[in-house]
């Protein structure tokens, strides 16, 4: 059985299905269209970003990054990511756990609410916080009386980032944990494990890849968020500007080298994220394929 399947796959790889093969011109034509499209729409812009960033050499690039306002934007962006990713990690795991392992009233409502940040425009998300915490907002006077600044300050930026990144971890985990069911946890409990032991020794290892993947996506969004943060930031350079906001300001002031220098940093982070994500997908797929392969092998020999 396994042999037959292997043979079949082999034929396929060698392109043996002459009858269903498309004519040469069509294959080449379609490939060319795809390549040109990729080059113009993706690769060229990336090249331009880096070319412009380094148009005044390394020195120009370094000077642009080292400028205090840019540097503080980098730090603020990293701070927003460092706060929002762990918060969403804890929230995402807790929400996915509750949704997939228990039956309760309002479960569908919870799933819908988790999706909310995906479905509303980030601008609206920012407005929500302004309406809530701003000077003329519901809690504004109360906060002002206690000299707590949220809007046009760092807490507002962190809050907005947390809001827009809420769905990433939970969305990734819910289908995974629903598919895995409750039996392994029940088995752990029946063997005498405590709830925490079952969670750390059984649940977490089972959702490991999904969890890492969710964190990566969450992180990417936290670094790149523009809309919601833009509304609550107030664009105070050196204080409440994140990298994307700083890039916009620099660009609008015709400071192309510094703008593209910052942009190239964001692009680098994004590329790095993609590489890590790809690596994880590859590893997860491989460990899965291995398991399946060997199962089939054992079943065939049994």
């Amino acid at each position: 059985m396994a042999g037959a399947a292997g043979h079949f796959g082999g034929t396929n790889k060698a392109g043996g299905r002459v009858g269903t093969r498309d004519p040469r011109w069509m294959r080449w034509g379609l490939t060319m269209v795809a390549v040109v499209f990729l080059a113009v729409m993706l690769i060229l812009p990336l090249v331009i970003v880096f070319a412009t960033a380094f148009s005044k050499g390394w020195a120009g690039f370094a000077a642009a990054i080292a400028e205090s306002e840019s540097w503080s934007a980098i730090k603020l962006t990293l701070l927003a990511a460092v706060v929002s990713v762990p918060l969403n990690l804890v929230f995402g795991v807790a929400a996915a756990w509750a949704i997939s392992k228990f039956e309760f009233r309002g479960k569908n409502l919870l799933i819908t609410v988790i999706d909310l940040p995906f479905s509303v425009s980030p601008i609206i998300a920012g407005m929500l916080f302004v309406l809530l915490f701003g000077a003329h907002g519901w809690l504004g006077p109360w906060l002002a009386a206690r000299d707590i600044k949220i809007i046009f300050a760092v807490p507002g930026i962190v809050l907005a980032t947390v809001f827009v990144t809420v769905p990433f971890v939970a969305r990734e985990l819910i289908p995974l944990m629903q598919a895995q069911g409750r039996e392994e946890e029940e088995a752990a409990l029946s063997l005498g494990a405590s709830g925490w032991q079952a969670f750390f020794r059984v649940t977490i290892p089972n959702i490991k890849w999904g969890l890492i993947y969710g964190v990566i996506l969450c992180n990417a969004r936290a670094l790149g968020e523009f809309g919601a943060v833009s509304v609550v930031s107030g664009h105070i350079q050196g204080v409440t500007n994140t990298m994307p906001l700083q890039i916009e300001i620099l660009y609008n002031e015709y400071k192309f080298v510094p703008a593209f220098a910052m942009a190239s940093l964001l692009v680098l982070m994004a590329l790095l994220t993609l590489v890590v994500k790809h690596g994880i997908e590859w590893r997860a797929a491989r460990s899965h394929a291995q398991t399946v392969d060997e199962t089939v092998g054992v079943a065939a020999t049994a």
């Binding site: 392994e184 409990l189 029946s190």
Partner: peptide
């Protein structure tokens, strides 16, 4: 009594082995 303290061994229909 909690399942943990009942001292029962439970074998699940689909085994529920810890896959990792």
């Amino acid at each position: 009594r909690h399942v943990r303290e009942r001292g029962v061994g439970f074998v699940f229909q689909h085994y529920a082995l810890f896959r990792h």
